[in-house]
């Protein structure tokens, strides 16, 4: 499906990359096969500037107010938030499990750091996800090359800085090939 290219409007602040917001929600009781995952994931929209981002984000429900098994995904335009996408297939993600009550603030800090190019890892960042679950929430940031240790270390250190997490927070790196197994 061809969509109109998004460009920054007059007087707006362009971003380094265009991004697309996605939303997914698991139907209770169904197995999470690849097909049902792709069917359950919906595009919210794409943006090219800071102001366009806020126009989407300000109207979106905050992750901490979501119920059930839901996810927001924010990926560079053209990258699907799936392991199978060419940009993700050799990649991995940093995962941070959050106790209830922290997701909204952490998600906002994470995506602002991504949009503002705070990670300083060239083209490596693919996108970010917040996953709302029953007992805890999970935020993750995906990069292209799981084997690039300098990059994954830099992403981890930037996450620590921008998320301002409690000192005992555990961060875990998972390659997407591990996740498939």
């Amino acid at each position: 499906t061809k969509r109109k290219a998004v460009v920054p409007g007059a007087g707006e602040h362009p971003l380094q990359y265009n991004y697309t917001f996605w939303y997914s929600r698991r139907t209770p009781g169904r197995p999470a096969s690849t097909q049902s995952y792709e069917q359950n994931i919906k595009q919210i929209g794409s943006f090219a500037s800071v102001e366009q981002f806020w126009r989407f984000y300000s109207h979106m429900i905050r992750p901490g107010d979501l119920t059930g098994h839901s996810d927001f995904h924010l990926f560079k335009e053209g990258i699907k938030p799936m392991w199978e996408d060419d940009a993700n297939k050799s990649g991995g993600k940093w995962i941070i499990r959050l106790r209830k009550g922290l997701a909204s603030r952490c998600w906002e800090n994470l995506i602002l750091a991504m949009l503002g190019e705070q990670f300083m890892v060239g083209e490596e960042i693919c996108g970010a996800v917040v996953s709302v679950r029953f007992q805890e929430d999970i935020i993750s940031i995906w990069n292209k090359t799981a084997s690039d240790q300098a990059t994954t270390a830099r992403i981890r250190d930037t996450l620590r800085r921008v998320l301002n997490l409690p000192p005992n927070t555990i961060m875990e790196y998972k390659t997407h090939t591990d996740s498939i197994k």
């Binding site: 409007g9 007087g11 707006e12 602040h13 362009p14 971003l15 380094q16 800071v50 102001e51 806020w54 126009r55 300000s58 800090n109 602002l112 750091a113 949009l115 503002g116 190019e117 705070q118 921008v162």
Partner: peptide, 21 residues
């Protein structure tokens, strides 16, 4: 080429701009 870098404070300020609403 140059990268377009914004810090959190600047991005939050843009939220209040009339064209962001």
């Amino acid at each position: 080429g140059t990268r377009i870098i914004y810090d959190r404070k600047f991005l939050l300020e843009c939220r209040n701009s009339p064209i962001a609403r």
